[in-house]
Computed example of a mutant assay.
Amino acid sequence: MKKFHPLLATLLLAGFTTLSLAHGDDPKTHRAAAVIKEQKEWGIAGDARSVTRTVTLTMGDNMRFTPDKLDFKQGETVRFVIRNKGKLLHELVIGTKKELDEHAALMVKFPAMEHDEPYMAHVGAGKRGDIIWTFNRAGEFDFACLIAGHYQAGMVGKISVAAASR
């Protein structure tokens, strides 16, 4: 029986991890990774061909999003175009208040923590990021920049998803 070499395992793992990217990276300099669709309380990753609406958000070093209140209908697939007008790295993370509070606390403890999910976009200064998200559940949700200090400074917004009419 052949032994599995630990170095080979490490190299394979390193190769697979380089396939995942932060949303907002320059599309000319990276390969796209498959998005893992996981149902969340606030929806599920969407497909570009299913986009029914595009919303542009700006964020800046004043620690604010514009707009900071968004309304959708259950079932809408939205392309968020996120523009960072500031000189600092910012991000947009969609979730529930509870999830964002917990994640923000972790970011304060571990500011260099890497994370990449389809409901997040990390956007460098002067850059643009995108999220495609399907709001398949009605409710009140939130979005925020969870970079240490940004959330605490009020870099947050609200999302309202109205139930689909029958």
Rank of each mutant, 00 (worst) to 15 (best):
V108R: 08
A104M: 02
T96W: 00
H122F: 12
P111E: 05
F135K: 01
A112I: 07
G95M: 05
P111H: 04
N136E: 06
G124Y: 13
H122W: 09
G129D: 09
D101H: 00
D116T: 13
D130R: 13
T134G: 02
T134S: 07
F110N: 13
L100A: 02
E117Q: 14
D130H: 10
I131Q: 02
H122I: 14
T96R: 00
F110Q: 11
E102M: 06
I131N: 03
F135L: 04
M107A: 04
M120D: 12
G126F: 11
E99R: 08
L100K: 00
I94T: 00
H103N: 09
M113S: 09
H115N: 09
V93K: 08
W133H: 03
A104W: 00
A105S: 13
R128K: 15
G126R: 11
F110W: 09
I132K: 04
L100I: 11
D130T: 14
E102V: 02
K109P: 07
I94R: 00
G95Y: 02
I94F: 02
A104P: 08
H122N: 12
W133T: 00
D101A: 01
F110P: 05
P111A: 07
A112N: 12
N136V: 04
P111S: 03
M113Q: 14
T96E: 01
R128F: 06
V123D: 07
L100D: 03
M120Y: 07
F135T: 06
V123W: 02
W133V: 02
E117A: 15
T96D: 01
M113P: 03
